[in-house]
């Protein structure tokens, strides 16, 4: 089975969909014509650039370069989460970056070296796409978990301080809130495990099947990816929430988040 080649003509035909969307925006005055144009341009530019970069990275096949790409993804992820979480009174960027580094690296290395038995473990053909999926998916989980942690600590300030006043340490006073925050971060990836294959066909598998891979092989990869994502969201959100929680309390184990 050979995949259908997508050439410049096919890419250009794809633009018809954007024009359709822009038409709708004009008719219903959605004000999205410009955003759609910019979004389309960025999609083309970013993905083409990525294609070229990947080609070069695969070609040179050096550990430093592969890990360099990983570092760029990581920094971008930290930046994205920082933009999504509104809390500014508690510095969370360092613990967030640390948890991302640790959880993403552990999961990615485990998958490439132990599960897929890629040699070397950093083989860019496996390491970059897989770690990319890990980073892309679990950064949302971390943003959700952090947001929940901060909003619950503020909303349930009285309860936390009541427990502190009765001799609880900061862990005991915030144990329910911590649990809920980690759960909130993990639930979407569990939900997607429930729906996968029934409600939706994951993007990675679609891509593989379209480019000619045997569906059974594509599915086996997809299963590994789903399990890997659950693992990385679990480790990532737990670690982030635990590290950031400490920063929400001061030296006197007092709650630092000021009331709104």
């Amino acid at each position: 089975m050979y995949p259908v080649e997508i050439g410049p003509l096919q890419l250009a035909l794809g633009l018809l969909f954007v024009l359709l969307a822009q038409g709708l925006s004009l008719v219903y005055k959605l004000g999205l014509v410009r955003d759609l144009a910019v979004g389309t341009l960025r999609t083309f530019a970013q993905l083409l650039l990525m294609g070229y970069v990947l080609r070069v990275v695969f070609e040179v096949n050096l550990m430093a370069v592969t890990l360099g790409v990983f570092a760029v993804m990581l920094v971008t992820a930290v930046h994205t989460v920082r933009g999504r979480v509104k809390e500014r009174s508690v510095p969370f960027v360092l613990p967030l970056g640390f948890s991302m580094l640790l959880s993403y690296l552990t999961v990615s290395v485990l998958v490439t070296s132990v599960v897929l038995q890629a040699r070397p473990w950093w083989n860019p053909v496996y390491f970059i796409p897989l770690s990319g999926m890990v980073v892309g998916n679990s950064m949302t989980a971390m943003a959700v978990a952090l947001d929940r942690l901060f909003s619950s600590l503020r909303a349930r300030r009285n309860e936390v301080e009541m427990m502190l006043s009765l001799g609880a340490d900061y862990r005991e006073a915030s144990s329910d809130i911590t649990r809920e925050a980690v759960r909130a971060g993990m639930i979407p990836s569990i939900t997607s495990m429930m729906g996968v294959g029934l409600v939706f066909i994951p993007g990675m598998m679609t891509g593989q099947i379209l480019s000619g891979t045997d569906p059974m092989l594509a599915i086996r990869y997809q299963i590994v990816v789903m399990l890997m994502l659950v693992g990385s969201t679990a480790i990532g959100s737990t670690l982030t929430v635990l590290l950031v929680r400490r920063r929400c309390f001061g030296k006197g184990q007092q709650l630092l988040l000021p009331p709104l």
Binding site: N158, E161, M162, S165, L166, A168
Partner: peptide, 30 residues
Amino acid sequence: RRRICYIQQTPTVVEGSVRRNLLLPFGFKA
């Protein structure tokens, strides 16, 4: 904070029975 106890303006109770609330502090390590 066990020696200097603070009573909040708004009484805060946790979910559960009166007993659970009264014994809440006894579950803390300290």
